[in-house]
Design a protein around this nucleic acid. Structure first.
Lengths: 335, 335
DNA sequence: GTGAAAGCGCTAACAA
DNA sequence: TTGTTAGCGCTTTCAC
């Protein structure tokens, strides 16, 4: 039924292998090339990828496993991966982790049956050292997004959470803020700890005490409750929220306790800004380069698949402070 | 290097074909079964998908082509597709249309090389009749998401945009609103027209004039400008925005022209509500069932691939009005 | 219930 | 430069 390389060979008066060679960019006589080209068009020939995959033992497919695909962050990451991978002649097979409570190492088996040539594992959850070790062990082409537990034997791409928060502190300091509180995110999210470190580091650089740190879930309600606690400190003029959602809660808390944002209290958050841009007030955020994370991971993976094992790196991508209307100069005068 | 079916046969003292039969659920003697099972475990055998694909001419992969993957809507759709497809033993290969300005019919060629067994084409843009006809012509397993240009020869899943808007009108009417304006979306988006029809239909049902309809882009700026025009009608008490972003603009416009939302003007929008929930005020929206769209499309495709050609259907999924704080009762008394 | 043999469509030696 | 040949790992008749 399907037209094969043999049909082309017959139609163009050559052999299977010549056709194959031509199709794969080998050198053939111009005349033969034209004849083959003509037959391909005429018979509407399309190479069978699966035969090709079988004989070359390369699937030209990469697997992508992301925590939760309906999340905006991940969809941007996926978009980044997709564009790079396509340009390198790979297809992108998607495996969701949402349903089953599978471990990331379960996906290693995809390398066996010829399913994939490379794998991108993406989560912003904290990883387990053992799991990461398992992933690193076989030395397959794998790139991690997010946490790598400090494992030097596996490639990893992440957002520079510490530096992003550092930038927030710098900004607020430059605006005259001295008493800055921090809403720290859940321990299970790998970035939450790093962000908090950035806060502490930033405060110390300016000789300020990083003593108002309240833990919170990354939810509106959590942010509200945490901010309420923070606001008991009458001298606080700025709150750094480790996440966008809890920033909404923090704003509500400010409003309810009679503080104006940004006149009395400046609020800054950390995230992608899809929401932050449109809220009232719009929220100053550190925008994470999610698409770039995907692109970088994919580029790295493609190199890995081409050149085999390489020195492993951990790439930290710069995020960017976007100043909006939830933050401003510290209120003047003695408090 | 890789362990094959032959290794298993040798190790379990049977033949290639018996192993294959067992692996595919054929009947073998219990003893043989156990022996094979043991060898599989022992040698860590994984069937080679590509050999299997070659010989069965089935890839067990479906292609997914979505307009813009970084868009929240599509990522939910993809999540829906993914979950269904995985449970049916397929993998989901993703092809983005973002980069190249390719036509949807270009992806038909994926059916030739054994790349995919089925295809989901998703866009909320208006489609071209000719293109849809091309897609329908070959009778491949294809499911469209969005517009189908009224073509009865291809399966299609869409959100019931008309009914959703109808529901908005019903709601506003029940809250006492009589002069309701409509911000109509861009002509190129297939849902925009259908939503507008819902508005007109809804107004007519109550004997109301659907005479304040302003066209707008689905942007904050567009919504602002359009709402400003609408607000020249002093008696308008509610604005239906065909999209979430332009609702933000409309709210700004209201505030700037001294109207309070929702006391003076009720605002309702159409979309997924990720943003709407967190804005101040939170926005009443018709929430589209994007995940469900994906699931439905995938289920349909799986059936199509199993049973071959079937009667074609167009499935319209119900959306749902979520009442939030941007809307309320019409202002009392004469205006 | 089982095994031998043929072949899916292709690539990759190798010899010509 | 080209054609012959031998597989890649698997499924699937078809005899036994």
């Amino acid at each position: 039924l399907a037209v094969t390389i043999i049909d082309i060979a017959r139609d163009s008066n050559t052999s299977k292998s010549t056709v194959s060679r031509y199709l794969n960019g080998g050198s053939v006589k111009p005349a033969t090339a034209q004849a083959i080209e003509a037959s391909v068009k005429k018979l509407n020939y399309h190479p069978n990828v699966n035969a090709r995959r079988l004989v070359t033992s390369k699937s030209h497919a990469i697997g992508v496993v992301l925590e939760d695909i309906s999340n905006t962050y991940f969809s941007e990451v996926l978009a980044g991966i997709q564009s790079v991978v396509t340009n390198s002649g790979y297809v992108c097979t998607f495996y969701s982790r949402a349903s089953n409570s599978s471990k990331e190492s379960d996906y290693l088996s995809l390398f066996n049956g010829g399913h994939i040539d490379g794998l991108i594992l993406g989560t912003f959850q904290k990883r387990i050292e053992q799991e990461v070790a398992k992933l690193a062990k076989m030395d397959y082409p794998i790139v991690l997004i997010g946490d790598n537990c400090g494992n030097k034997k596996i490639d990893c791409v992440d957002v520079d959470n510490e530096d992003g928060t550092l930038e927030e502190v710098e900004y607020l300091h430059s605006m005259g803020h001295r008493r800055i509180a921090y809403l720290r995110g859940p321990e299970m999210i790998s970035g939450a700890r790093t962000r908090a470190q950035g806060f502490i580091e930033g405060m110390h650089r300016h000789g300020l005490k990083a003593d108002i740190i309240v833990d919170t879930e990354w939810t509106v309600e959590g942010g509200y409750a945490a901010a309420m606690q923070v606001l008991r400190h009458q001298d606080v003029t700025a709150i750094i929220c480790s996440n966008e959602y809890c920033a909404y809660g923090a704003i509500s808390a400010c409003q309810e306790s009679g503080r104006t944002v940004p006149d009395d209290i400046s609020i800054v958050a950390f995230d992608d800004g899809t929401l932050a841009r449109y809220s009232v007030p719009s929220i100053t955020t550190v925008k994470q380069p999610f698409k770039s994370v995907g692109e970088t991971a994919a580029n790295h993976l493609v190199n890995l698949m081409k050149s085999g094992s390489q020195a492993k790196t951990r790439i930290l991508l710069q995020s960017h402070l976007v100043i909006r209307s939830s933050s401003g100069a510290a209120p003047a005068g003695p408090r």
